[in-house]
Every structure is written in C-alpha cells, then in structure tokens.
Nucleic acid binder design. Structure first.
Lengths: 140, 140
DNA sequence: GTCGACTGTTATAGACTATAACATAAATAG
DNA sequence: CTATTTATGTTATAGTCTATAACAGTCGAC
C-alpha cells in the first residue's frame, strides 16, 4: 500500500487542493453558495461594474460558463446585471448580495486562518510565494 | 480589477492547483490517459494485487466511481481484475499496462521537474511539507 | 462604412463527484 | 454454529465544473 507519487509536489498539490476545496465547499454551502459563487461575490463587491467577461478572465471561467452562474446569482436577488456597453453587462451586488458576501467573507476568513494554522510555522511564509510561482495568472 | 482573495493561501492553492492540473492533463492526454488513470497505473504498478476498494481509499475515489474507471482500464488491456477474495478484485497491470505506466511516469517526471523549477529556490524545500500539512491523508 | 474582434447566449458533451440501493461475501458476536 | 454487522463491487442517477462550437449583436480600427 505504497504511493509512489507522494514525493511529487504537483501530486501533493492536487491532493491537498481537492481536500481543502471539499472542506471549504462544505462550510460555504450553509449559505447556499458554491465555492465559485462565493468567490464571485467577493470580486464583484470589490469591483462594482466589472463585466461578465472580465470577471471570467480573472477567475479562468469562460464566457459560456459564466452566463448561467451570473444568471443564477441575479435570479436569487444577489446581483444586478446592467447593460453598460450595449454588449457588456456590468455586474454589481444588491444590498442582499452585499450582506451575503460579508457572511461569505467571514467563512472564508475563518477557513483560511484554520488552513494557515495547520502549516508548521517554519514553512508558513513560503507557501504563498511558492504557489504564486506555480500559478501563471495576471502576470503573463 | 482587483482580486481581494489574492492574499489567501487556500484561494491561491486552488488556483495554482487547477492551473497545474490542466497543464498536466494536456501533457498526459497524448498517451490517451486522464490524470486519474495515469495515477492509478502508477499505484497498481507499485502495489500489484491491491483491491479496487483499497485503491479508491488511497486516492479518495469512491467505490462506485472506481468501477467504471477500472473497467475501462481493463477493457483497454492495461489492467487485469482478478477475484482474490470472493468479493474483492485484485488489480495488476498487463505487460501493455506496465509499458504505458512507464511512459506515463516519464511524463510525470518531466512535469514535476518543470513545476519544481518554477519555484524560487529559497521556497522550494518548503512547499512539500507545507502541502502535506494541509492534506489530511494517511496520517489520520 | 467595412471588417475584425469582443460580448453574451444557447446547446451540447465530457469528466469528476456524490448518494442510494442492491447482491454477495466476509467478519464478528452471541 | 447462527445471526448480525461490515465490506466489496455494481448499477443508476444526479449535480458540479469544464470545454467547444455556433450565433446575434456591438464595438473599434482602418
């Protein structure tokens, strides 16, 4: 019962991430939110008026997959989609959306604190820069 | 266009992991393998006779989801499923399975090396122990 | 003003996960 | 030994997330 992949950082990254994501999903679901929805609420709260496309680019969610997510959040009364451009939709949270975003943020904060506390102190400061180096995001 | 979650390790973990997984998937697909299949070939190669259930427990794949995966690998002639127990199926690779597992291993090795090289040297040694602390696996 | 690029949408397919129910076999308790 | 509990593999099903193609409408560059 030996796992020959345990020495590989990419494999451990995948296993650790799926475990952490599952734990977070089980915490955020009490607000009736999925992980992606909770993330979107945070980003739209911080960037009112952002377009669906721009939001999708930030989160690596394609336009085609963004549509039903945004429509669902709007249908729940959490978000408005205002034509800004003729073709673009500017997103902004409703009052109810802001309220739920704050509750979600509290859950995120607690989760992230719990996560950080599990990391041995001597490694803690290294995790973020190491992961950022693996994530070819805004900087490419 | 600001991402208020960028300071959270759990969020970065998720983003980095999905990006890395997508890259790996695109590399391993040239062998006609999915990520989970490549992993299974490695584990069965190292643990001949392991049961489907035990394999699933190692990989956090449920019995019900293991069945079609194992059946597919068997149908491709990569793996045998031999009744060991009356209820259990012992897994082992065919010759062709071993060959493909070796090719997959080469891709894994290259991928993991590439990944490691992206991490700034001063953080490199810290990633693995930090991730292992986040992954409540065999040790719980 | 035309052409190419961008936005949002619909439809569809694939991969992965989660749950329940079932038949069978093994292990345990008494 | 028998009866109950546990384990294994299977089927069926649903939900989530992702990926691609095609379309209509709009914007920008030239």
């Amino acid at each position: 019962m030996r796992d020959p992949l345990l020495k590989y950082p990419g494999y451990i990254l995948r296993r650790a991430s799926t475990a952490a994501m599952a734990e977070f999903a089980s915490r955020i679901v009490v607000l009736g939110l999925r992980t992606s929805e909770a993330t979107i609420l945070q980003i739209v709260a911080e960037n009112p008026g952002i377009s669906q496309s721009a939001l999708g680019r930030m989160l690596d969610i394609q336009r085609a997959n963004m549509t039903p997510i945004a429509a669902r959040l709007e249908a729940r009364g959490l978000m408005r989609r205002l034509p800004s451009d003729g073709r673009s939709l500017g997103l902004e949270l409703t009052d109810e959306g802001h309220l739920l975003a704050e509750k979600a943020r509290a859950i995120i904060d607690t989760f992230e604190t719990d996560l950080t506390n599990r990391i041995p102190a001597e490694h803690r400061a290294h995790l973020m820069p190491a992961l950022l180096a693996l994530w070819p995001s805004a900087d490419d």
